[in-house]
Design a protein around this nucleic acid. Structure first.
Length: 795
RNA sequence: GGGGGCAUAGCCCAGUCGGUUAGAGCGCUUGCUUCACACGCAAGAGGCCACUGGUUCGAGUCCAGUUGUCCCCACCA
């Protein structure tokens, strides 16, 4: 038995233990068909900056599940990945280096990107390791790696061959800042102050007042609409409206989507002001009038404002309208606009040729797939359902960016028909490799596609990336669907949604059986932790250094699954610190009484109180396992805390202490009976806490338990699977605690020490437990220092 | 505007199938220390379980509505 230091060593010990785990390969994934598989689809963090406490929070909740399943006998497939291509990483590099992607050569920029993401990834890995994460780093993947690119390109080609991915020229959501198409999922809403300009159109010489926030798009107006039931305008439908400043005429149409009570009840439809404009243009077969270029400037053919940016053009048009008496009034309003989530710029809609994946046509199947996934907590499913039901755009997967998975396509120089790369040639970059085939039209000249795939198009095949890796171990069969996906609730509409889309198309099945949805750590109500808010000063590494990984982990486990929590360092330090000290000290006590303990020797008789604490422990093991099986690590921890602190330490150990100390008085067999209980109970308490505080429990285990158990690491042991606890013994325990409690209350109220002698203690309880109480008399007398025990038993 | 979560002690939160007197922890008050732990032990004070109705022998728990709060989605004419 190793000596217990007076105090637990904290972070320094954690580092030693981490090294031990790594040297011993404790968490190594092994090809093993003898145990059931539990595979975890864990989120590859976007490499877009450093991690903060929020990441630690959600990743740790999932990590505890991995540990639990491992100790339940599962072969746990727990990889780690990085999502390290695409716009987020590009923006990080632009910010760090000051180099804009479009101001340097593409290959030079991509080299800088690789360099930067590798640097951050090394930092991430170091952080995860210092948190004691039990993933197998050999299973690590990166979405920019050759193998992930190969799988991603293959996915694209297969979906295109099956008709699920297609290319079309049409209006698309466009970020003029990032100069790329984006998808609906990348939109954020932002409330902005604006003017609702009431502009004078005219119909046969009469003024028709129309309110718009986008007068700069007047040149792009293709029709005017009113509600068919609006009596004010019933006479106008079917006539022509003249656009102010430009004086061309457009048709006047009626449509139900026009709200009579909004603005003036008459709407101008421009190409393209918003999503409704796109719908109307397609619904009524209206032409496209180009007003805006992809770089955010007005088209050269637009009179008055050619070449100006949107905002400048808007001011100029308003000035002109005002000057010509065509501006009736300007109303100040606050409204929501769509902005690009990555850069915050207002999103435009411009026509261009892009690749899409069909999702609008598959809403039914997607909703049905959502039903088959078990969501934890269950109500998180509504976010998925809500998103699918409100989809307005197919998933645009092409991005006019640089650092990403190239779209493996060339286009015939003559007929523009796409030619796909051969699957055996993947990954391929069409900009570097020429297409060697012949087009159906006979042409042999091809133009490479220069776009890259949406980052989500690759991260959404994480189950397939994992499958690919598992296959290297010969464990590919039966790998899909994976056991569970873990992620935060903010990316249900992206990562969870896209993964389900891809899985349905590729396998016809859901990607995973369970979805474990974690909450956030907020600085305070409604405020996310972020660098821009200046509330992310405390880095995770600094936090680990100051209060240890286990302290953070224990605090994380206090939160309910899916629920946001507020960061409170005081709570973390105090609560966790107290707990860890308590576990350390009680283990020190227990181990000091196990020096001569032989787990194989049975005592002549086992005291009822010793059997009770074993039953209580077994009861807790079952409760904790049930909660963890539902991903509720917090509720499980609460049940374990209750057993450990209250029943085991404050009651059981206090009551049997004298029997452990004084075998001369109470007998060696009686001592052995207690030894068996403290050994069994603390060992199993440690195993349960191993999920939460893996370093501390490992440290304690290796001081006093490894030689008795015969297994080197606590993390290689298994949780007990006890028979249902004996209800009668549990009831006896409650009565016993009540007797002790009453004795303590008497001493407390009379200002007596707990060691003070009292003339008598009354045993109140059920008559049917009298035998057990009689067998417990020595313990009761010893812990209460009573000269006499009197019985007052009810029925 | 649509959807969802939450509302229980001063604070952060549990409360299972509807069932005795509503539960921890922090904080507060009081008492207790050689023999694992004062980062401890024991005791105590502290509740219109948001509000209004309903179902029921019985509601913190189930149903309907109201209010407050947070989140998701939409709103861009």
């Amino acid at each position: 038995m190793e000596e217990f230091e007076k105090r637990y060593g904290g972070v320094a010990v954690e580092r030693e233990i981490q090294k031990y785990w790594e040297d011993q390969g404790i968490y190594e994934y092994r090809a093993d068909r003898s145990r059931p598989l539990f595979s975890i689809d864990t989120p590859p963090p976007t490499v877009s900056g450093s991690l903060h406490i929020g990441h630690i929070f959600s990743y740790t909740q999932a990590e505890m599940i991995a540990r639990f399943r491992r100790m339940q006998g599962y072969s746990v497939y727990y990889p780690f990945g990085f999502d390290d291509n695409g716009l987020p990483s590009e923006r990080l590099v632009e910010k760090e280096t000051g180099i804009r992607a479009n101001e340097t050569s593409r290959s030079a920029f991509c080299d800088r990107c690789i360099e930067t993401v590798r640097k951050y990834e090394a930092e991430f890995v170091a952080l995860w390791k210092s948190m004691g994460f039990s993933c197998d780093w050999k299973l690590q993947y990166s979405t920019v790696s050759r193998s992930a690119q190969r799988l991603s390109q293959r996915s694209f080609i297969e979906l295109a061959a099956a008709g699920h991915a297609y290319i079309k020229e049409s209006p698309v959501l466009w970020c003029t800042e990032c100069r790329t198409s984006i998808a609906q999922a990348e939109l954020d809403a932002r409330s902005v102050d604006a003017f609702f300009h009431h502009v004078a159109f005219s119909v046969d010489g009469e003024v028709l007042e129309i309110a718009t926030t986008r007068p700069e798009l007047l040149y792009g107006v293709v029709c005017v609409l009113v509600n068919p039931d609006d009596p004010r305008y019933s006479g106008l439908i079917g006539r022509k409206a003249k656009v102010p400043l430009y004086d061309f005429e457009v048709p006047l149409l009626a449509d139900d989507k026009v709200a009579a009570d909004k603005g003036t009840g008459a709407v101008m439809c421009a190409t393209f002001g918003d999503t409704t404009d796109v719908e109307w243009v397609s619904q009524y077969g209206l032409p496209y009038r180009k007003a805006l270029l992809p770089d955010g400037s007005m088209a050269p053919e637009v009179p008055f404002v050619a070449g100006l940016g949107v905002k400048a053009a808007r001011e100029e048009i308003v000035r002109l309208l005002k000057g010509r008496g065509l501006l009736v009034r300007s109303e100040r309003i606050t409204h929501a606009v769509s902005v690009h989530e990555r850069c915050g710029a207002e999103v435009e809609i411009v026509p261009s040729r892009q690749w899409y994946i069909d999702v609008l046509g598959k809403k039914g199947e997607l909703l049905e797939a959502g039903d088959r996934v078990r969501w934890y907590p269950a109500h998180m499913k509504s976010r998925y359902v809500n998103w699918v039901e409100n989809l307005k755009w197919d998933w645009c997967i092409s991005r006019q960016r640089y650092f990403g998975v190239p779209i493996p396509v060339w286009y015939c120089a003559k007929c523009a028909r796409p030619a796909f790369a051969d699957l055996s040639s993947l990954p391929v970059n069409p900009l570097e490799t020429a297409y060697s085939g012949v087009c159906e039209c006979g042409c042999t000249e091809f133009v490479p596609d220069s776009a890259v795939l949406d980052t989500w198009a690759t991260s959404s095949i994480s189950p397939m990336i994992n499958l690919d890796k598992a296959s290297e171990y010969g464990m590919g069969d039966g790998f899909m669907p994976m056991s569970m996906r873990t992620q935060a609730h903010e990316i249900i509409r992206t990562w969870a949604f896209y993964t389900i889309v891809k899985s349905l198309y590729h396998t016809g099945d859901i990607p995973w059986k369970d979805a474990m949805i974690c909450g956030f750590v907020l600085a305070k109500p409604g405020e996310k932790i972020s660098k821009s808010k200046g509330n992310a000063d405390l880095t995770p590494q600094a936090l680990i250094d100051s209060c240890s990984a286990d302290a953070i982990r224990y605090w994380v486990a206090g939160a309910r699954l899916g629920t946001d929590t507020f960061f409170d360092q005081g709570e973390m330090t105090e609560l966790s610190g107290r707990f860890m000290t308590k576990l350390w000290n009680s283990s020190k006590f227990v181990c000091s009484h196990l020096g001569d303990f032989d787990p194989l020797r049975e005592p002549a008789e086992t005291k009822p109180i010793d059997r009770w604490i074993v039953e209580r422990t077994n009861e807790t093991i079952a409760q904790a396992a049930a909660f963890l099986g539902e991903y509720e690590a917090g509720l499980a921890r609460k049940a374990i805390d209750e057993l450990f602190w209250k029943d085991l330490c404050d009651n059981y150990i206090e009551i049997v202490k004298e029997r452990l100390y004084q075998p001369d008085i109470y007998g060696a067999e009686a001592r052995l009976s207690a030894q068996r209980s403290i050994y069994y109970c603390l060992l199993n308490v440690l195993k349960m806490y191993a999920v939460y505080v893996p370093h501390l429990t490992e440290c304690i285990y290796r001081k006093g338990f490894d030689r008795l158990v015969g297994i080197d690491s606590i993390h290689l042991t298994q949780w007990e699977r006890p028979a249902p606890a004996d209800a009668e013994l549990l009831a006896f325990g409650e009565e016993l605690k009540a007797v002790v409690s009453e004795m303590r209350k008497h001493k407390s109220e009379n200002g007596l020490s707990m060691r003070a002698e009292v003339p008598s203690v009354t045993i109140r309880g059920s008559a049917r437990h009298e035998g057990w109480f009689r067998e417990t008399e020595a313990d009761l007398a010893a812990c209460s220092h009573a000269r006499e025990l009197v019985y007052d038993l009810g029925s």
